[in-house]
Design a protein around this nucleic acid. Structure first.
Lengths: 150, 150
DNA sequence: GTATCTGCAAAACATTTGCAATTCT
DNA sequence: AGAATTGCAAATGTTTTGCAGATAC
């Protein structure tokens, strides 16, 4: 994988958020920011384990929980079977493709959400999740059986 | 619990959606539509089991999966630990209270969601989930320690 | 009587926890 | 040395699966 962010920068970033930048945490953090796949604990573990043979899943769980706690990542509710994570904590929507399973981001500014919570309710986080079929999978479907009305 | 919907009506409703209305399915369905608590499998099981001693969790899982498959219920992604279900499949938002754990509905018409998916993406379902503190818990907090700035 | 549905037990996963070994300063 | 972090193994909790018995038509 091509790294877009240097490890030293990640170390500083973690430090700034009160997280001691251990080797494992830096690697996990870098994986999270350099991928757009909104990975699960297991995806991260399986990607890094060949390279860090002693890595354990607990460490991945611990690190991600810490990132969420310090507000530099969010856990996203999109997959019923396992929790997935996102280093982008700004307001944006998620689209989960029912065919390929990929999770895509889409723009979502506060003016596009015009609902009102009941009186006295205060929200600290809002997630918008769509389920459907992504453009890539829609293309494959139509080219595989151009005339079939599936 | 006070039943708001008759069992015979539920049986017809299930039938209309291609679900054979067994005794267990009717009871599970009635529980789901007569409660506003967005229950989990376990909440349903524990509520019905005293009354239907032979009921098993598998049956609750099976029935709910069937309801979702036939489009008369939806599983809602709000709780990280267990899946919760809702018999209201119309567009509406969910609010999950971090303190009491209750899930509330709130109105959400299509005009209040003004975002655009990427080109070629089609969504068949959209969920809006907020996390925060409900009015009841906010009241308790402020009355318990009126001057404390927690 | 046959097909479907149910219930139990076991299996399969995801996640958490306790603790000992390791690492960092 | 002392504090924090890591890794393993066991525990926990949710969900799925296989199958035998029960039920419905």
């Amino acid at each position: 994988m091509e790294y877009l962010v240097k490890e030293s920068e990640s170390g500083n970033y973690l430090n700034e958020h009160g997280i001691k930048p251990s080797y494992q945490r830096i690697r996990i953090w870098n994986y999270l920011i350099n991928t757009k796949e909104h990975p699960s604990v297991d995806m991260i573990y399986r990607s890094l384990a060949p390279d860090i043979p002693t890595l354990s899943r607990s460490t991945v769980y611990n690190s991600l929980s810490l990132f969420v706690e310090r507000g530099i990542a969010q856990s996203i509710l999109i997959d019923e079977s396992e929790t997935r994570y996102d280093a982008d904590v700004s307001l944006h929507g998620h689209f989960h493709c029912r065919i390929c399973g990929r999770v895509y981001d889409f723009a979502l500014d506060s003016s596009s959400l015009k609902f009102r919570l009941p009186q006295g309710f205060t929200a600290d986080s809002t997630q918008v999740c769509c389920q459907g079929i992504c453009s890539g999978c829609a293309d494959k479907k139509s080219s595989a059986s151009p005339s079939a009305a599936r």
